[in-house]
Amino acid sequence: MTTTDPLLAVAGLTVRFRLPDAVVHAVTDLHLDIRPGELVAVVGESGCGKSVLAHALLGLLPRNATVTGRALLRTDSAGSRSGSAGSRGGSALARGGDGAAPVDLLACPPRQLARQVRGRVVGLVPQSPATSLTPVRTGRRLLVETLRAHGHTGADAPVAADRLAVDVGLDPADLDRYPHELSGGMAQRLATALALAPDPPLLLADEPTTGLDRPLVDHTLDLLRRRCDAGAAVLLITHDLAAAQRVADTVAVMYASRIVEHAPTEALFEAPGHPYSAALLDALPQRAFRPVPGHPPMLTDLPAGCAFAARCDRATPACRVQPAFTGIRAGQVACHHPLERAELCAEVPA
């Protein structure tokens, strides 16, 4: 892990949806730092709000959403990152002349987000590649277009396209096919190549492995890891704990709109600090294969205090107060009665 400043610093992110009859607490007071070269996974049960996090960072929330907090993206970082993408000079934003001022993804005007941030600085590896590819263009045209739009010359782009294809595990010959002629796995790899083409310093992967078989899951994950090792920062959002364990540096466990624990991967899987993390891990077929008891609360009707208390065997009256989790460092647990490791890991350097 690096000791550099975070590339993306999310502080106090809160997202609410107004429905006619209720308010959805989708994300609450979320703190998360991602440094260059770091792969952070966010895991949790379905409906915990983890996808909303990705949508919020991309500015893709519906209009009835209220977003507060900050998500500062450093814009000088990519320039200092060299050698990861061959012979290219400078990042998109550096070329754009934005200098070193960080961009707040949550306050950024939609036009700037669309033109200067999404795709260029923040790449998205989509969940369903088949529907995210333009059906009337071949993979090669999609890829070359993207490369040209991001600073490759006309002569250089096709070569780069081939290189990128090999990089993601696609036969360059398959680039001449149309999206509907590709299998699900090939389409996923093409979509990944498209996300990687602008060489974004930050990659957001929202459930990138859903519906893929094991070898492809591993391949996609390893690809993200390699990107990370080359200096990019990756935020992986997944319900698949095994995926997080395979590639993540740190894992944030999300429950009922909040991050309840953020710890180095190894530490989390060996000795989870939050009772919920422990219960979730116990559900894995490799372990007890025992579901977390009870049901997750509705995001429209969260209890006061710790939202896990009702399902937790360590709960006491103290749990009626929301446990503090204001720190932004990996290794912290939002629990009044954490399991053994918590004290141990409170010291983990960021």
Binding site: E45, L280, A283, P291
Partner: peptide, 11 residues
């Protein structure tokens, strides 16, 4: 259970 989280899968 491929699209489900670990807890729902186990359940």
């Amino acid at each position: 259970t491929a699209m489900l989280d670990a807890s729902t899968q186990a359940h």
